[in-house]
Simulated scan of single mutants.
Amino acid sequence: MKTVPVALGDRSYDVRIEAGLLARAAEHLAPFARKRPFVIVTDTNVAPHAQTLAATLPGAEIITLPAGESTKSWANLETLTDRLLELGIERNDHVIALGGGVIGDLVGFATSILKRGCNFVQIPTTLLAQVDSSVGGKTAINSAAGKNLIGAFHQPSLVLIDPDLLDTLPRRETAAGYAEVVKYGLIDDFAFFEWCEGNGAALLDGDPQARTHAIAHSVAAKARIVAEDERETTGKRALLNLGHTFGHALEAETGFSDALLHGEGVAAGMALAFAFSARQGLCPGRDATRVAAHLAAIGLPHDLKTAGITASGARLVEHMLHDKKMDAGTLPFLLARGIGQTYLDKTVDLAEVAAFLDEQPR
């Protein structure tokens, strides 16, 4: 077992990574057991895994929600909190989030507000959730105005990652999660980006060693950044948003639907961030080309055309104006001076962004 600590003082917790861990989850959950049974929240896609887990936890209740990004809504938040209250959840209880990023975000936010805050454990079942959204305490739902605009920082008590759960994922879902893996190389770890170039295909093909290494390395990278800047106040944690400003605009244009998965939007967004950086003379063009080439080789969108976006630059920038990172009318962008050299730029002219997007092939 690989254990990665997330060092946050009295909110610290472990991320434990091991193949087959779901079958042994009960022993790791034992310290959180109380007189009432555990409640497992999952979705229709993950329901069989929930039954496997529940069989090891006497009396466990399962709440099954619809699968998909649209589940991160006010309506499902109300449904979930009402059901948890019906089951008598108390402040010191632990709710188990078993699923991808949607379930983790929804359960995390629900427990942050239920009885002014109760506890939860993350058991992520997608690559994207295992390497990104399950760690760090960002929880949220979507609104009509945009993605993740209603939420709170609420850290889990434990994260249990079983790489074997990825065996049941469609390849498209795994590839979308891989975008968040390669992101850590692009931020500040050129050597890891090179590792991704050499091993990304094997990871997607299910190679156990490549998969475990990528998950552990990604989690350790995120844990380090979160420990330095838990609430994104110093700018360090903002680096984790590489590709997200462009990506969220693309997702918004597709209605946050399965037409463009979150990780696919992030992939295209990262390629666009590097391309924009190159256009501005900040980043060597060969680095932007190299990033796009790797994403294309993996089968991920790497520009507007491969993301299926035909909207104008002005329309995409309009989506960006709803970004939660807007500050005094300014939208910070994650740009790059090269691979592994991402930085936060608060001086970007949105008119230049719109012009750049209009230049991109469709």
Score class of each variant (00 low, 15 high):
22 L>N: 09
20 G>P: 07
29 L>C: 12
33 A>Y: 04
27 E>I: 14
27 E>V: 14
15 V>R: 02
37 P>N: 05
20 G>A: 08
39 V>P: 03
18 E>Y: 07
32 F>E: 10
36 R>E: 04
43 D>I: 02
39 V>K: 03
43 D>F: 00
14 D>N: 14
18 E>N: 06
15 V>T: 07
38 F>D: 06
14 D>G: 00
19 A>T: 03
40 I>M: 01
15 V>A: 06
29 L>R: 04
25 A>R: 09
25 A>Y: 06
14 D>K: 11
43 D>E: 11
30 A>Y: 08
34 R>F: 06
19 A>V: 01
20 G>R: 02
21 L>G: 08
14 D>H: 06
32 F>L: 14
32 F>A: 10
29 L>V: 11
25 A>C: 02
31 P>H: 08
23 A>Y: 09
29 L>S: 01
20 G>H: 09
23 A>N: 13
33 A>R: 13
33 A>S: 15
21 L>H: 10
14 D>S: 12
31 P>G: 10
35 K>G: 14
31 P>N: 09
32 F>S: 06
16 R>C: 12
24 R>S: 12
43 D>R: 00
34 R>S: 11
39 V>Q: 04
33 A>H: 13
29 L>E: 12
20 G>V: 06
23 A>I: 08
41 V>D: 00
22 L>Q: 09
38 F>V: 02
35 K>Q: 13
24 R>E: 14
18 E>S: 12
36 R>V: 02
17 I>V: 12
39 V>S: 01
18 E>C: 08
42 T>N: 06
42 T>I: 00
30 A>F: 11
15 V>H: 03
30 A>W: 10
35 K>T: 15
43 D>W: 00
36 R>F: 10
14 D>L: 04
33 A>G: 13
37 P>M: 10
24 R>D: 13
35 K>M: 14
21 L>F: 08
36 R>Y: 05
14 D>R: 09
40 I>L: 09
23 A>F: 10
40 I>R: 07
27 E>A: 15
39 V>A: 00
15 V>G: 02
23 A>D: 14
26 A>K: 12
32 F>K: 05
14 D>I: 02
37 P>V: 04
16 R>I: 15
28 H>D: 10
